[in-house]
């Protein structure tokens, strides 16, 4: 359609057949363009890793039909081989299987904690911003106070109140991670709230609830969602740290943290694989998730509207 228009123009003016030149490669946009392929590569590899991880934790345990807890003392601390690609640990359990199970637990903890933290943070942030006045001041001062305590310390305190297990860790991670989301959401809501479209909604008879739910929260959700995804790796690290300190999951339950913790003595003896593979399982998926989140952030940045400068 655009083509026919171009030729129509050619018939009436001096030029015959318009020669279009792309702008890319010369303007400010040019420098961005250069990094584009690298960025695409990063996004796709991140996506591939995340998909592989999700498939692994969902499919492998039921399919493998192997007991990851099974102890074979005869096979203890075998280096990586075809039979045991990641080797075995100090009681002869297959490390690959342990890592997949561990990842499953860590991912579960990470995702659930991130979701809970985001819900809390969004609710608190939105409440503080839309209530304003003293409610806002009190809530945000509380957030400040909580933020001033180191996360891990607060987490240890919370975990210490319960028996070791998955849920105390989830609670501990969630309760220490909603603070930043609350701040982000509050700032977003405050900036949206002063927009004339909120004035117009009020004048159109919208209730406070309707303004918040229909006009303010939808504007905040992309930010909150991004914060949630970025929080998953953080939560996984947090879980690993708690477990490594012996405060998270019970040692017999495989999680990435307990695996690394259990491998400490082997590492001192010079056996590297029980530490390396769980360590990689912490680093690679979390980097992949963060990579995807970064791509998402680029997308929701309001740069898109300037694509068409009209």
């Amino acid at each position: 359609m655009a083509e026919t228009r171009t030729t129509a123009g050619a018939g009436t003016t001096a030029d015959t057949g318009t020669v279009w030149r792309p702008v890319a490669g010369r303007s400010v946009a040019g420098s961005r363009k250069a990094s584009r392929s690298t960025r695409a590569w990063r996004v796709w590899s991140s996506a591939a890793i995340v998909v592989a991880v999700v498939l692994a934790v969902l499919i492998v345990p039921p399919l493998a039909d192997l007991d990851e807890q099974a102890v074979h003392l005869a096979d203890k601390l075998l280096p990586p081989s075809l039979e045991h690609p990641f080797g075995t640990d100090d009681v002869g359990r297959d490390l690959l299987l342990r890592c997949v199970y561990g990842l499953r637990v860590s991912l579960l903890v990470g995702v659930v904690a991130a979701v809970v933290a985001t819900v809390i943070g969004t609710a608190v942030g939105a409440l503080a911003a839309s209530a304003g006045g003293w409610v806002d001041r009190v809530v945000m001062r509380l957030v400040d106070v909580f933020s001033s305590v180191p996360h891990l310390l607060l987490g240890i305190f919370i975990v210490a109140m319960f028996r070791p297990g998955v849920w105390p860790v989830v609670i501990s991670v969630a309760l220490t991670h909603w603070l930043s989301t609350a701040r982000i959401v509050r700032a977003e809501v405050l900036s949206l709230r002063s927009r004339p479209y909120v004035d117009a909604a009020i004048s159109g008879g919208a209730s406070r609830w309707r303004v918040t739910v229909r006009h303010l929260l939808p504007g905040v959700l992309p930010q909150a969602g991004l914060a949630a995804v970025l929080m998953v790796p953080h939560a996984i690290w947090h879980e690993s740290a708690l477990s490594f300190l012996g405060l998270g999951l019970p040692t017999h339950q495989a999680s990435l943290g307990t695996l690394v913790q259990g491998a400490r003595s082997s590492l001192l003896a010079g056996d590297w694989w029980p530490t390396l593979f769980p360590g990689l399982f912490i680093i690679v998926p979390t980097l992949a998730i963060a990579g995807l989140a970064g791509a998402w952030r680029d997308r929701i940045n309001p740069r898109r509207r300037s694509e068409l400068m009209l």
């Binding site: 927009r195 004339p196 479209y197 004035d199 909604a201 159109g204 919208a206 939808p218 504007g219």
Partner: peptide, 27 residues
Amino acid sequence: VVFQQPRLSADPRLTLTQLIAEPLRAT
């Protein structure tokens, strides 16, 4: 009320129909 800057006066997520109908739905 009608303000100076239409871009800031319109919720960017609503279609024009939804924008115009919003006061009806709100009431």
